[in-house]
Design a binder for these strands. Sequence first.
DNA 1: TCCGCTTGTGGGATCGATTGCATAAGGTTG
DNA 2: CAACCTTATGCAATCGATCCCACAAGCGGA
Lengths: 336, 336
Amino acid sequence: MAITLKDVAGAAGVSRSTASRALSGSVLISPETRAAVQEAAAKLGYRPNRAASTLRSRQSHLIGLVLNNLINASFHTIAEVVQRRAAAENYQVMLCITDADPRREESFLRTLSTYGVDGLIMIGTGKNAALTNALLAEGIGMVSVIRAAAESAAPSVLAADREGAHAATAHLLDLGHERIAFIGGELTTNSGRERFAGYEQAMRERGRAVDPALVERGAFDPAFGAEATARLLRQNPTALFTANHEAVFGVLPTLVAAGVGIPGQLSLVCYEDIPWLRWWQPAVTVVDNGARELGELAMDLLLQQIENRSPREHGTGRAYRVGAKLIVRASCAPPR
Amino acid sequence: MAITLKDVAGAAGVSRSTASRALSGSVLISPETRAAVQEAAAKLGYRPNRAASTLRSRQSHLIGLVLNNLINASFHTIAEVVQRRAAAENYQVMLCITDADPRREESFLRTLSTYGVDGLIMIGTGKNAALTNALLAEGIGMVSVIRAAAESAAPSVLAADREGAHAATAHLLDLGHERIAFIGGELTTNSGRERFAGYEQAMRERGRAVDPALVERGAFDPAFGAEATARLLRQNPTALFTANHEAVFGVLPTLVAAGVGIPGQLSLVCYEDIPWLRWWQPAVTVVDNGARELGELAMDLLLQQIENRSPREHGTGRAYRVGAKLIVRASCAPPR
DNA sequence: TCCGCTTGTGGGATCGATTGCATAAGGTTG
DNA sequence: CAACCTTATGCAATCGATCCCACAAGCGGA
């Protein structure tokens, strides 16, 4: 039915082996033969059968991308970056959405391995370390992004959450703020813990105690952001650092509804550089966690692993950090 | 190296053929044999090799998802829905991001066909109809979503943009507005054309002429939204319908900066139900284009095609419509 | 008893590209 | 000129699951 390598070989007057070598490049083939085969392939519109190629060569040119969802800005940014880099290097991406459910994740990991993926980019739950380590041992490349299980042997690319939160808090302190409120995620999450640590550290460095009444931690969800903001406003803070991204959707409307002037009455810093915060009035100062660079670096590491084929060297669980950047815009001013 | 069907067959004391049939289900196999094979497979941790299966059976259980980007809310919503449905039906999704570039799209389509995808979900550029029709003729399933080329033989699932825009405009007219400004996309795009048509139709039905000074059409981009809003405010509209989703990011800050009271001074309706507009203060009345249903319906149609394997029946270019819903919130009121 | 049918199982070819091994042609060196 | 190496090519096995075909066992009816 479809055109196979045999047809191309026939048209070019060579054997299948020679045709294969001519098209895959980089082996002993005379320039004329190579040209003849390439011409024949082009003329016939030959498209190689990846299933056959994968079966024999054990290289699928497939990369599995495992993540929680695509709604979160960091996640879909990373997904985009990964797909683009992959395509540029002639790899294809299999998308798997886990909802942060370890059971779904496990199922995806098993399925991906049946497809013979060459590597995996994981924003993982951290609950399947035994399985991921087994896959790693089988020679499948792997890089964890954003989250990393301590027991995982895969290298990880992490956001500098502590540094980012530290920079945001320091910025507010530099402006002269003392009553800096904090809205964060639960301490059970990586980012919740690290960002609070950054906030606390900055306060401590300037000799400021953290006032528990100014700290709100809760679910990654706008409703929590709204409640927390309402509570915090009663404490008369002069600045607010929202380190819980999803909560922002609740924080901003609550501030507007309460008629709080920004930055006149309250200085505001949020987390993650999403378009809305850039286009808001006044434009909101944010911490950019560097989602694009996270994705780029993860793919660099993964492609290195895949090409070297040396799980030993990479299976060290080494953690790389991507710097967070404070993007100063118009939402902060010295306190009155 | 890895455990193959041969190993499972050996452990269960049957032939490879029998083992294969026992695991693939739905053929003549005695219950005891089937149980024995399944047990052996489970005990050995057998994971079938998809490459081999695809090569022989010409079914990859892969679906290609081709779209512009993942930033746009409709697109990543559709991507999520497609992936979930696919996973539930034991298909995997290959993600391809085209940036709406026909050349990239073409390249992805060719690559996907080398992987032997069973079907394609396309938010396409419409510029590769010859190629998509060829793939369709080869037996690859296909459904276009949101955009559809007239020359394409694939069925399409389209948003009811005209109806949505009509409903939004009618809502404003019902409240008593007469000077209803419109911000849309270029007429060269499907959604730009259809949404303007809906606006115009609603106006016409109520005997209102469309005032060209109240209509702005331009790029899908916040900067355009900001300029357009600034120009429109000089025309003293009592209501604004923003049918260009990306422009919203420029429209809202401009309105806030100009101190326009909503809905007191100006009623506002936007397009697409994204979290920000739900949590804005006041909550913004929007037209929901039904991205989730678009994705669901597209997958339903695709799975039907793949299972029936009857390109004839489906290759009719038939267009399905998903209804748009007006979600009334707090951003509209009668004019003063 | 024999024929024909149903049900279950095995043998072996097959999908299409890759690759180890053999070999031929041409060139170099002592 | 013989021994040897380099370069280019072909042959045939191979990857692992599927599926056509053959065939055996069991059973009912004539």
